[in-house]
């Protein structure tokens, strides 16, 4: 079983003797290849430099899956502004739909532009060069895309005061995600990952989560499955407690193949609702254990998650995506710990 097969089998809940490792490497690869952020995101997106970065990191970590491209959530196509610090992490600095009327001047299909084309080209290069590694398209979740477009603070106000606009914004966002993931995935990807920090019941409330996030995740997942791909959902917020079991169940019932829990969850609290329904992903906190080390703590925490989830279809990840300046050695210690584990038949 090659790394890609191990990853896909686990996501399909088939029995495996090993646990795959997926670091969701959005910008850390540039550290592995020693490439500046603003040279990848230059006048045009440098797909070759992006692919080299992704592959450099994969070779160190021997990860079973990658997103295949250096990635950012910029929405210049709709009028937003993204900043690219030389050796830092890109961030959205001006929101495309801060003026809500601007949304009416755009069509969701405009997201398939030069930047997304560049991501696609990087993924193609990665697919050609390391075909035995699973390729997972990274896109934002519905409320998360809406947050990047509108600004999270304004979006929170909209949820209280401007619900008609929220409905339109979420339809627009979901349609844009749909175009983006189809364009990036076609004929090369194995699955799609919804990075969903703002699809977060702790931020938007349980009712808004059920009303707004869940139906659109379900819709996207139906499309992903129609395209023959697998879907992984990564909302932030607490899902592992008894009073949140309904929203965990609703999230799993969207049909996703994998659910990644974020920091602050107790993995054991999720098993009753994910067991036999979807794979479970997640693990060590990127900004505490992985950032600080030492090796013993990384090994201890990684083993703690493996022990808790060894009887599940478990894919080891960090608590969120990995970015520049995370010590490569520390991530490698985590990867080695995951790869040294074998299930007893």
């Amino acid at each position: 079983m090659d790394p890609r097969e191990l990853f896909i089998s686990t996501l399909k809940m088939e029995p495996t003797d090993r646990i795959p490792f997926f670091p969701r490497d959005l910008t850390l690869g540039m550290d592995a290849a020693n490439i500046a952020t603003d040279s990848v995101f230059g006048r045009e997106f440098d797909a070759e430099a992006s692919a080299r970065s992704v592959i450099a990191l994969q070779r160190i970590m021997r990860s079973e899956a990658t997103v295949g491209t250096i990635f950012c959530y910029g929405l210049e196509c709709f009028g937003g502004v993204t900043k690219y610090p030389t050796d830092g992490i890109p961030y959205v600095s001006e929101f495309a739909f801060a003026d809500e009327e601007n949304m009416d001047r755009h069509d969701p299909s405009e997201i398939v532009n030069g930047l997304v084309d560049g991501f696609r080209r990087s993924m193609e290069l990665v697919k050609e060069r390391i075909p035995d590694v699973a390729l997972i398209t990274n896109v934002p979740g519905p409320m998360t895309m809406a947050g990047f477009a509108r600004g999270v603070e304004t979006l929170m106000m909209d949820l209280e005061l401007n619900r008609g606009f929220v409905d339109r914004l979420l339809r627009f966002s979901t349609e844009a995600i749909s175009y983006e993931m189809r364009h990036m995935s076609k004929d090369i990807a194995d699955g799609v990952f919804y990075a969903s920090a703002t699809d977060n019941p702790d931020m938007i409330g349980v009712e808004n989560y059920i009303e707004h996030s869940v139906p659109y995740v379900k819709k996207l997942t139906e499309q992903v499955h129609d395209d023959g791909l697998l879907a992984i959902y990564h909302p932030h917020g607490v899902f592992s407690t008894d009073d949140r079991s309904d929203i965990l169940k609703a999230s799993v019932d969207t049909g996703v193949d994998g659910f990644q829990f974020s920091e602050g969850n107790d993995p054991e609290g999720m098993i009753p609702h994910t067991h036999g329904k979807c794979a479970i992903l997640g693990g060590v906190n990127a900004y505490s254990t992985l950032l600080l080390g030492p090796d013993e703590r990384i090994v201890r925490d990684t083993k703690r998650y493996i022990e808790a989830l060894k009887d599940e279809s478990y894919i080891a990840m960090c608590s969120c995506s990995v970015h520049r300046k995370l010590p490569l050695h520390n991530l490698q210690v985590m990867a080695d710990t995951v790869h040294s584990y074998r299930r007893v038949a």
């Binding site: 702790d202 920091e263 990127a286 900004y287 505490s288 950032l291 600080l292 300046k325």
Partner: peptide, 17 residues
């Protein structure tokens, strides 16, 4: 943020860098 999450992930990068 909403003050419902842990805070060390923000302090740790300051400690390191």
């Amino acid at each position: 943020g909403n003050c419902m999450e842990i805070s060390s992930p923000m302090l740790n990068p300051i400690y390191i860098n």
